[in-house]
Design a binder for these strands. Structure first.
Lengths: 129, 129
DNA sequence: ACTGATTTTGAGAATCATTCTCATTCTCAG
DNA sequence: CTGAGAATGAGAATGATTCTCAAAATCAGT
């Protein structure tokens, strides 16, 4: 299951992810490709998505509903703040959190500590209470 | 889909979760109940697990593989530090993170900001490098 | 360009966790 | 004891993801 090289399909998939400004489901990507006329198969979409994630060019978040959501992103370490109303998401970097996570891990005798952080809320494009 | 009241099945499920000292899959819970002789059905396990989560008596984490993992926990706000080797997990509370998350949300114009944090690493019960 | 070898593709089948359906069983008040 | 409503559990249904495999695209060397 070697990582597929660069192909037109991969470029199309990356284009869709770049165009969406929030996370989208693999199924979404597939549907949009179809809508644009590309006859790309579902299996191919999953293959490339997995490869892109492996390369760090795309982020995945498995939502509580059990589906994976993908989003193209910068390669460096960061987290996402996603709007629950419109799906728009922003990359954020919070040093305080990085430090706190490392410290807590050490306090409990854990090493090689990794963390996953997802922030969600309602962005200012929606009516305030 | 009203929450099921307290029943022998629910007690059995809570017992299994309490006995495991890490997260377990709904399927795991079901298998263990079967192994113990209870003829509890899978649907019932899912129903109670969902209800317990709703009540805040149990935590869920949807793992990257797309399966939900459950663990009984204290009702108050906290996060988990889980060992990737043995699955043992510890509840942690990190004020610095709570504050940082709230601040970042505000900075980007988001309100009602929630966060999900998962910490993982290798605990001291395993050979050090 | 032509050949052969290798990789990628895509349609549909196969998986697997989770949810739904519904007839049966339980619980409890009266 | 009786009846209403809640809970149960077996199996079907769903839906996302993965696998299979034959056909199509790509590439190196000529």
């Amino acid at each position: 299951m070697a990582a597929p090289r660069d192909t037109p399909q991969r470029r199309a998939i990356e284009a869709v992810l770049a165009a969406a400004d929030g996370f989208c489901t693999a199924q979404d990507v597939h549907a949009r490709l179809r809508a644009e006329g590309h006859g790309t198969g579902l299996a191919t979409v999953y293959r490339h998505l997995a490869a892109l994630v492996e390369q760090g060019r795309v982020d995945v978040v498995t939502s509580p509903g059990g589906e994976a959501r993908y989003r193209s992103c910068s390669g460096s370490h960061h987290h996402h703040l996603t709007c629950t109303e419109c799906g728009r998401s922003v990359e954020v970097r919070i040093d305080a959190i990085e430090r706190a996570c490392a410290r807590v891990g050490a306090e409990h005798g854990f090493r090689d500590v990794h963390h996953t952080i997802e922030l969600s809320g309602v962005c200012d494009a929606h009516p305030a209470p």
